[in-house]
C-alpha cells in the first residue's frame, strides 16, 4: 500500500511504510489553483509516485 496524504507526519507516526506527499488536506491529488490540464498533470505525477513506491522496497 502506498498512502497519499498532505499530512505526512501522521502517516509516518502510525507506521505507514510507503508515504507519498499529497498536495493539500482539501485535495490530496489536486490543486484548485491550477487550470484543469495542469491539475491533471499534477495528479498523474502524484499517482505515478505512488506506483513507483509500490514497485520499490519500503
Amino acid at each position: 500500500m502506498a498512502q497519499v496524504t498532505a499530512v505526512t507526519p501522521v502517516a509516518r507516526m502510525v507506521g505507514s511504510n510507503r508515504v507519498v506527499q499529497g498536495k493539500g488536506i482539501v485535495y490530496p491529488l489536486g490543486d484548485a489553483g491550477l487550470d484543469p490540464e495542469e491539475e491533471k498533470d499534477l495528479r498523474r505525477s502524484i499517482v505515478k509516485q505512488a506506483l513507483e513506491a509500490l514497485r520499490s522496497e519500503a
Partner: peptide
Amino acid sequence: DAVILTST
C-alpha cells in the same frame, strides 16, 4: 495486489 490509500 496493491493499494493506493488517499488521506485527507
